[in-house]
Structure formats: C-alpha cells, structure tokens
Amino acid sequence: MHQKLSFYVDRDSFLHHLNPLTKLTLVLTLVILSFLGLSYWLPTIIFLFIIIPLSFLGKVAQEFFNATVKLLLPVVGFLFVMQAFFHPDGTQVIFSIWIFDVTVESLSFAYLTASRILTMVASFLILLLTTHPSDLMSDLTRRGVSGNLSYVITSTLQIIPQMQVKAGTIIDAQQSRGLETTGNVFNRVKAVVPLVGPLVFGSLVEVEERAIAIEARAFTAPLKKTSLREIPDRAAERAARWIFIGVIIIAIGLRIWLL
C-alpha cells in the first residue's frame, strides 16, 4: 500500500532549486515579521503579497490552495470564533449571543491572531511543498545539526502512515475477538487498551530491530558522513540569507524602539 509520506511536490521551479536553508531563513523572517506586531495589517499583506505569489513561483499554487482550504481554514476559523467570543475586553458590542458579547475589539483581535497563524503555517507549507525532506535534513546535518536528530525527524515523517496501517490491523483483530469499538462512548473507551497495548509493544520490537538494522549499516561509524543528494548553495543565496537576518534584526530593533 503506497502512502504519501510528505507534503513535497516534485516540480522544476526557482523555489525548488533554492538551498533549503535559504527557504528556511525566509520562512522564519516572514513568521517573525507577522508576530512582532509592527503593523496590524502586516500578516495579511505578507500572506497576500508574498506567500501567495511564492506559491505560484514554486509552481505549487494548486496544492497550496488545496492544503490551505482543507487544513488551515477550519483551524483558523475556529481560532477566529473563539477569540471573537471569548476575548475579555471590549466595549463596543456589535451583537450578543446568550452571555457572550462580540465587540469591535474582540473582532479585531481575533482577526489579527487568525491572520498571524495563517501566515505562519502557510509559510512553512511553502517550504515543505518545495523542499524534499531528505534535502532539508542532509543540508542541516552538513551544517552541524546532529545526525541522530535529523534521522529522528525524517523517520518520524515516514512512520506516521505506517502506524495508521498497523492500528487498523489491530482494531480488525480485536473486533474479530468480539470487541465492539464503534457506537457509544463507553465502547470506544473500552477499546483503548486493546488497541494501544499491541501498538506500543509492536513499536518496541520494531524500534529494537530497526536499531540493529541501522547499526548494521554503519550508522554510528565514527566517520564524517557524506550525502548522496547534492544540495546547491550559491553565493547569492548566502547573501540573501544575511539580508533576511538583517531584516529580522531591524524589525526587532524597530519593535523595541517603538515601544
């Protein structure tokens, strides 16, 4: 059974050819700018005039909009509603439901929060859509991030769909022994131990065997690792990264000065 293991979409675009670290720096810059609170509309402007154009530049606009609509809008919408109703301050009541007042202040705060979250997740989405996870990890390892850490991250990415398949088999096996897992809440709660027990034990066996397998592949050899994947890094990109970092420093400086 083939399952999609990451967000990555294999296309030939300017963004795809950028060094992963350049993209990561750009994303961090956008996120920091959105959260610093320099301007109320800044997250919205970043989303509309930087992130959306980037999705076209990376030739992943369709996937980007799909993921945004399916994944993000419900979450952002939920946040918006929560903030709009439950923000404590505010005097200019627009309308009330039961004991909750929606005020101009709460509404504007809700919009700000939602637009920030949207901008943050959308920037990372662009990174993940245009960057092969192996490239990101190889590049970070090359720059001194621990090999163990990047192994844990890439293997976790892959293990989630496998766990789902396994959980499915375990549920089938327990139902076949007469366990009701659907229907009322009581049934569902009762089904937790028979599901989680084998899942945890199975994972322990799997972790031990996998540890043997990667050890057999010289994972802990005391040598400097090399990488099969070639990751480009041009002088212009290094310059761009310094510019991003400059922007971040200036923005933080402005924020402190404006306070």
């Binding site: 192996s134 293997s155 892959q158 996998r210 010289a218 690792k225 990488s227």
Partner: peptide
C-alpha cells in the same frame, strides 16, 4: 523493520550505509 526509515527512494536507501561511511 530493516528499512532505515529515513529514506524516500530505494536508491537513497541503499546509499545510506555508504553515506555513513563517508564515501565520496
């Protein structure tokens, strides 16, 4: 359980041991 778990293609999977050995 013998798949390294961190590689996305068979070619990369087979190269994993050589990466660890620092082969050019």
């Amino acid at each position: 359980n013998q798949i390294s778990g961190s590689k996305f293609t068979v070619f990369e999977e087979i190269a994993f041991g050589l990466e660890n050995l620092g082969v050019k």
